[in-house]
């Protein structure tokens, strides 16, 4: 039974099966993680290298690209330069994103307040599962409904084709509504109960409590929800492409056909030849899209950091 210390030391220093498994497990799980990072790097790298080719190989001026209003990559303008002004799409994307967020925010936050503060019972039982379910509805379904309901409606009210920024805004509004609502509700739920109790105990009305205490305390979370919804709207491709009309023109009114970065990308990439200017210009649009999603990401982080500091 009793072993000499030397014997025991040898036994305790022999590498056990557990130790071998541990190293194996660490290596395997770390490789999986590295694979994901590699994917991210590859996506950014590939899209950037393709997107920059417009400026490096085709010598398009970056400023012309960002501020030019004419998008006809297969044509050249009076100075013999290709017409690759992306401003109309950039404006289209931002317009549709901002408008849908402006419309969706009051509805989303209002509903979140309702289901969290005013009628928590109905909120938890009906509204919350329903919004969570709607978050999962595929965007093509939103696009299809936009095409079969919203576009004809716009056409009958405003005339024209019905395709345009307004229809796109409507579709995106409904599409991001469940996401923003559900995230706003999470933000409100994170406000400690005693905040409300303290305010009500001081004689404030329910609305004063909601407005002055709950919404203030939840502001960073609500902002994150809205920015998240905007990021989704900005990056949405098919639903928008189906209702916006896909005319790469500067939008003059909300009911004329327009285009966004994503809509031009989805329709164009299959119809151009790899390596051509027309194709490279589209990749530049994809790069703008990618950079914007990084910007949204950064904004969300900044909000989060500020929220923590408070």
């Amino acid at each position: 039974m009793t072993k000499s210390p030397e014997q025991l030391e040898q036994e305790l220093k022999r590498r056990s099966k557990a130790a071998k498994l541990e190293i194996w497990g660490r290596v395997v799980s770390f490789s999986a993680l590295i694979l994901i990072v590699a994917v991210v790097v590859a996506i950014i790298g590939f899209v950037a290298s393709k997107g920059l080719a417009t400026f490096t190989t085709n010598h398009v001026n970056l400023w012309d690209f960002l501020s030019g209003k004419n998008w006809n990559p297969s044509l050249t303008d009076a100075h013999g330069k290709p017409e690759v002004g992306a401003l109309s799409m950039i404006v289209g994307s931002f317009l549709i994103t901002v408008l849908s967020a402006i419309v969706a925010t009051p509805f989303a936050i209002g509903t979140a307040v309702f289901m969290n503060e005013i009628s928590p019972n109905r909120g938890a039982k009906i509204l919350q599962p329903v919004t969570e379910l709607l978050v999962g509805i595929p965007s093509v379904v939103y696009g299809f409904i936009g095409l079969s309901v919203v576009v004809p409606f716009t056409r009958s009210v405003f005339g024209g084709s019905g395709f345009g920024i307004l229809s796109g805004t409507c579709v995106l509004f409904v599409m991001i509504l469940p996401t923003v609502t559900s995230m706003s509700a999470d933000a409100l739920r994170a406000v400690p109960r005693y905040y409300r109790e303290a305010s009500l105990a001081l004689g404030a009305t329910q609305w004063q409590t909601i407005y002055k205490v709950v919404l203030r305390a939840a502001t960073p979370g609500l902002m994150t929800a809205v920015v998240f919804g905007m990021a989704r709207a900005f990056g949405e491709a098919l639903a928008v492409q189906m209702v916006i009309g896909n005319a790469a023109l500067m939008p003059h009114s909300l009911v004329d056909p327009a285009a966004t970065l994503t809509s031009v990308l989805t329709t164009g990439i299959g119809n151009t030849v790899m390596g051509s200017l027309q194709n490279n210009a589209l990749w530049s649009l994809a790069l703008v899209l990618l950079l914007m999603s990084l910007v949204f990401n950064l904004i969300i982080r900044l909000i989060g950091r500020k929220g923590r500091l408070q």
Binding site: V37, I43, K50
Partner: peptide
């Protein structure tokens, strides 16, 4: 951060990368 970026990329960009690669 990399994972967050991947989750916030528009799916059309992911699709285009898939096409390219």
């Amino acid at each position: 951060t990399a994972i967050e970026i991947l989750s916030s990329l528009p799916s059309v960009v992911v699709g285009l990368f898939g096409f390219l690669f």
